[in-house]
Simulated scan of single mutants.
Amino acid sequence: MKNIHLKFIIVACLVLITSIKSFAQISKAEIIATGLTCSMCSNAINKQLKTLPEVVNVETDLNTNTFTVTLKEGNNLSPKVFKEKVEKAGFFVGSLVVTSKPETITKSSYILVNDKLSNASEIQFKILDKGFVTEKEFKKLSKTYKNVETYASNNEDDFHIKLIN
């Protein structure tokens, strides 16, 4: 009887482990934040981003409100983490561009809305979902991608992306 329970537990654990969506190998994130009015605002975002143990460095451009976050290799971060950190500081994401390895897209819940993946060692892509672009841009994108069923559903665990390079 114990053997049957042990086998069941092992099988259940394997199913659980393989069903978890993974987000792997983001090497850099470029975040343009909105709502900032002073250097203290950017400092609040900077502090929030630096609380992530995967962060190596955060560079800030006060002229464009851009935060370039360099990450440790092998991290498992989701783009949602950056959005949450910016919002925790009291601001919003106007744009999020991610640099990663191409296999990151095939191993997770990224949905490519343009082109095909290149053979480059690293790719850049922009997250197009609500909360990762300005409200005005989201309205425009909603019209553009109205035939993309997953975009209309607005599932926060799916990330619709557009390749930049």
Score class of each variant (00 low, 15 high):
K136G: 01
F92H: 11
P102W: 09
F92L: 10
E137W: 00
L128G: 09
S118R: 07
D115L: 05
T106M: 09
L128W: 08
K126T: 07
V97H: 04
K126L: 11
L128C: 06
V113G: 00
G131W: 08
G90R: 10
N119W: 03
K126V: 03
A120M: 12
T134K: 12
E103W: 11
F125N: 11
V113I: 03
I105P: 04
S108T: 03
E122G: 01
T104Q: 04
E135T: 14
K80C: 00
K80D: 05
G131V: 03
G90H: 04
S108C: 05
I111G: 00
K126M: 10
T106Y: 03
E122N: 12
K107S: 14
F82C: 03
K107W: 02
D115E: 14
D129Y: 10
V113F: 02
K130P: 01
G131A: 07
K130Q: 14
Q124A: 09
S100W: 05
I111S: 10
V97I: 15
D129F: 09
F91G: 01
Q124C: 09
S109A: 11
F125P: 12
S100Q: 07
G94I: 05
E84P: 00
F82T: 02
V97L: 11
S109G: 00
V93M: 03
E103P: 00
S109D: 13
D115N: 15
K136R: 13
I111W: 04
N119R: 06
V86I: 13
N119L: 10
F138E: 12
K136L: 13
V97R: 10
L128F: 07
D115Q: 14
N114P: 05
F92A: 13
N114K: 04
D115H: 12
V81L: 08
G131S: 09
N119G: 15
G94M: 03
V93A: 03
G131R: 10
K116L: 11
K130M: 10
V86F: 02
L117C: 10
K116T: 12
E122C: 00
E103M: 02
P102G: 06
Q124W: 05
E122K: 15
S118T: 15
S95Q: 12
A120K: 15
S100D: 02
K136Q: 14
K130G: 02
